[in-house]
Amino acid sequence: MNVIDESGILAISTRLQRLSEQIRKEGFLVYAANGITFEPKWFPVIYTLHLKPVLSVVELAAEIGYTHPSTITLLKELEKEKLIRSKKDKHDERKRLLQLSDKGKKLVEQMQPVWGIIIAAITELTDTQNNLMKAIVEVEQQLQDQSFFERAKAIMRKGH
């Protein structure tokens, strides 16, 4: 065990990030093993635009749960790779509407069978006594009810 592992709940953010990075890194290997060049960090944008073909930047950010700046960073990468395209909204010139390019649509076609493999492997990985997906949903609900910061402030007020 290292210091972070030994610190328990104090390092939960670090451990979740570490877990996420490992799954992303190996997800890249799964795509590569299937002849697909794809960065797993692009997944939320590609998948969302696959299901909801035309979205504004603000709508997309809300769908994936990322901040506007984080979403813009991903969009720039995906536009550079020519996987998405954008056009101005006819009703609101300030708005950009995003959609998968033809190259992006072809990529999704290649990826769909791999998603089944990923689902099976991740399900096997997370189907533990304390199912990780169920726990994530529970924690996300707790955060919606009251933020981490609000909880900490309440504890500070109690003089903990």
Rank of each mutant, 00 (worst) to 15 (best):
Glu81Gly: 03
Gly35Lys: 09
Ile84Thr: 05
Gln110Trp: 02
Lys52Trp: 07
Leu49Lys: 06
Leu75Tyr: 01
Thr73Gln: 11
His68Ser: 05
Glu59Gln: 11
Glu124Tyr: 13
Val57Thr: 15
Val108Gln: 05
Tyr31Ile: 07
Trp115Asn: 07
Thr67Gly: 10
Pro69Lys: 03
Asp89Leu: 02
His91Glu: 13
Glu81Lys: 08
Trp42Asp: 03
Thr48Gln: 04
Leu75Lys: 00
Ala33Pro: 01
Lys90Met: 08
Val45Leu: 01
Lys82Leu: 14
Tyr47Glu: 07
Glu93Thr: 10
Pro53Asp: 15
Thr48Met: 04
Arg96Trp: 10
Ile84Cys: 04
Leu51Tyr: 11
Ser86Trp: 03
Lys80Trp: 03
Leu125His: 09
Pro40Trp: 10
Glu93Met: 10
Pro69Asn: 05
Ile122Trp: 08
Lys80Asp: 07
Thr48Arg: 03
Tyr66Cys: 06
Gly116Ser: 08
Leu60Ile: 01
Val30Glu: 10
Lys76Phe: 07
Val57Met: 10
Lys90Gly: 07
Tyr66Lys: 10
Thr123Ile: 04
Ile72Thr: 11
Leu83Val: 03
Asp92Cys: 01
Arg96Tyr: 10
Ala33Lys: 12
Ser56Glu: 02
Ser101Ile: 06
Thr67Pro: 04
Glu39Gly: 06
Glu81Met: 09
Leu74Pro: 01
Leu60Thr: 04
Ala32Pro: 06
Lys76Thr: 12
Ala121Lys: 12
Lys82Ser: 15
